[in-house]
Write a protein that binds this DNA or RNA. Structure first.
Lengths: 152, 152
DNA sequence: GTTAGTTACATGCGTACGCATATAATCGGC
DNA sequence: GCCGATTATATGCGTACGCATGTAACTAAC
C-alpha cells in the first residue's frame, strides 16, 4: 500500500517534470520565431483570447485565461490600447468595468500572427506526434485543466 | 489531401492550446502553494537541477534546463549565492567558468521544498489522471522534448 | 438616503527580466 | 609565442512584473 502510493507519487512527479521540459523547449522555440511583430507572447495571447469572444470582455474575464496578475494584465492592456490594437469601451451597465474589444488593426494583426504561429506549432508538434497522440495530449491536458474549485 | 493537412494542423494547435491551459492552471496552483520559503519557482528549479547533478555545474549547463536568458540566470544564481544556498567555486581547468554547487543549507532547503511541492504535484495530477494516463503524459512530453537540433 | 462592505480596475514601488554589450579566458592558425 | 575568433560569464539600461494599496462604483442593510 505504501509502496503503491509512493510509486504513484513518483509517476505523477515524473510526468510533471517531463511536461515542464516539453513546455520549456517548445516555448523557447516559439518565442524565438520571428512572427510576433513586436508583441510578447502574453500580449498575443490576450489578442487571441479577445479574438475568440465576439462579446466585449472585461479585465477579470481575461485574467482567468492569461497567467498574469491583475495589475500586470491591466498594464498589458494599457500597452495594447496605446498601440491601437485594443479599445476600452465604457460599460453602460457598470461604470467600473472597461469592456475590451479588438480594433480592426488588432484583429488583423492577431490573424497574421496567428497564422504564422499556428504553422510553427503544427510543424513542431506534428513532426513528433501522430494524430492519435495529438488527440491524446489534448484530452489529457483538458482533464488536467478542468475544475479550478476545491481546497475549502 | 488539403483537408487532411489542415485537419492535422488544427489538431496540433488544439492540443497545444489545451496543453498551455493545463500548464497555466497548474502553475497558478503550484505557485500559490505556501511551500516556497521565499524562493521563486525558477530559483527552486535551479536548486532542483543542481541537486540532481553530483558534479558541479556551470552556468551554461543550467541554461539548458531553465527557461531563462543567460544574464537572467547569472543574476538568479547571484541571489542564491547571497542567500547562502549555492556556492561558486573556481574551475582550475577553465578560469572563466564558475562551477556551481549546492551548499548544505541549499541542499536541505531543496529537499524540504521538493517534498512539499512534490506532494502538491502528485495530489493535483493523481486526482485527475490514472496511472496509465500519467505514464502516457510523460511519454508524450518526452517525445516533444527530445532533439533540440534542426533549422539550419 | 446614508454608510459599511464588496467589486473592478488602476497606481506606487521595488524587483527581476531580456537585450545589447563588456570583460575576461581559452582556442587555433600561423 | 602572438593575435584574431570564440566561449563563459557579468553588467548597463530600459521594460515588465508582482505585491500592496488606492480609487471609484456598485450593493445592501438599516
Amino acid at each position: 500500500m505504501e509502496t503503491r502510493t509512493r510509486g504513484r507519487t513518483r509517476l505523477a512527479n515524473d510526468a510533471w517534470e517531463a511536461a515542464l521540459g516539453a513546455h520549456g523547449v517548445l516555448m523557447r522555440r516559439f518565442t524565438a520565431e520571428d512572427v510576433w511583430h513586436g508583441l510578447t507572447m502574453r500580449e498575443y495571447d490576450v489578442l487571441y483570447t479577445l479574438s475568440k469572444c465576439d462579446s466585449p470582455q472585461r479585465l477579470g474575464d481575461l485574467g482567468g485565461h492569461v497567467l498574469l496578475s491583475q495589475p500586470g494584465l491591466s498594464r498589458l492592456v494599457d500597452r495594447l490600447v496605446e498601440r491601437g490594437l485594443v479599445s476600452r469601451c465604457a460599460d453602460p451597465r457598470d461604470a467600473r468595468a472597461a469592456n475590451l474589444t479588438l480594433t480592426d488593426e488588432g484583429r488583423a494583426l492577431q490573424r497574421r500572427i496567428g497564422r504564422a504561429h499556428g504553422a510553427s506549432v503544427a510543424a513542431a508538434l506534428t513532426s513528433r506526434l501522430t494524430d492519435e497522440e495529438l488527440a491524446l495530449l489534448e484530452s489529457l491536458s483538458l482533464k488536467l485543466t478542468i475544475d479550478p474549485e476545491e481546497l475549502p
